[in-house]
Amino acid sequence: MTETRIDRRFEKLKEEGRPALVTYMMAGDPDYATSLSILKALPGAGADVIELGMPFSDPMADGPAIQAAGLRALKGGQTLAKTLRMAAEFRQGDDETPIVMMGYYNPIYVYGVERFLADAKASGIDGLIVVDLPPEMDAELCVPALRAGVNFIRLATPTTDEARLPSVLRNTSGFVYYVSMTGITGSALPDTGRVGEAVGRIKAHTDLPVCVGFGVKTAEQARAIGGSADGVVVGTAIVNAVANVIDAGGGLTADPAEAVATLVGGLAHGVRRARLAHV
C-alpha cells in the first residue's frame, strides 16, 4: 500500500535515533471544543503519533479510566462523525503528525465501512486500531482499509505465540502495537526486561516498527520501554490528566490542554533519553 504519515514519521525518527512517543486521547472528552484544544496541543508538547480514541458505550478491553473518559465524551455529544470532523480540523494546522483512530468496531460498522474509510481518508486519518477485530475477521475492515490506503495496526499480546504471530502480522501496516500484558488498559506495567524480549521476538518476524503500550505512565517508564521499542504508547495517564481537572459538577478547574501538554512534555523528554546509553 501507499506510504502514510505513519511510515514517514517512523522513518524520520529512525534517522534521529529515538523512539516515538505515541499519545492516546479520548475524542470528545469532556466536550468537543476542549478535546480539540488538547489534540492541537499534543504535537507541540512532544507527541510523535496521536491515537484518537473513538468513544464506545461498551469498551470491553478498557480499564476504569478510559471507560469513564468514553462515557464523558458520549455524554458531551461525541459521535464518530464528530471525531472525524475533529481530525479534519486538526489537519488544517498540522499535515505531518500521524493520527490513528482507536476503538471498537460497532460504531464503524453502523456508520458503514466504505463510507467510514472514505471519510477517514478525507479527514486525514492515517491508521486504525480496532480492538475487537482479530485477523480472523480481516475481511470486515482490515482488508478494505488497506485497499483505501489506511494503515491497519494490529495488537500483538503476550498470548500471541510464535505460531500465531505470522497471521497477526500478515495484514498489519504502519506499526505493530505490542500490548505489554494480558489485561485491560491502565493496569500496572510488567518488568521492562520481559517487554524487551517480546519486542525482539516480534521484530524477528517483521520490519515494521513495534510500539509498546498498556501500563506506561511516567517519563522514566517511557525511557525504559523506549530502549527496546520503536515507540511508547501512553493512554490512561493522559486521560487521567484530563479527568483530574474536571470537578464533580463537570466544570474545569484548570486548562486540560495545558495539563496534558505538561504531562506529554515530560514523557517526550523520557523517550528522547531512551537510547542515550547506546550512543
Binding site: P134, T157, R164
Partner: peptide
C-alpha cells in the same frame, strides 16, 4: 463470528 481482542483469540 469472533469479534474479540487478540489476547482472547488463542483461548
Amino acid at each position: 463470528g469472533r469479534f474479540v481482542a487478540e489476547t482472547l483469540m488463542p483461548l
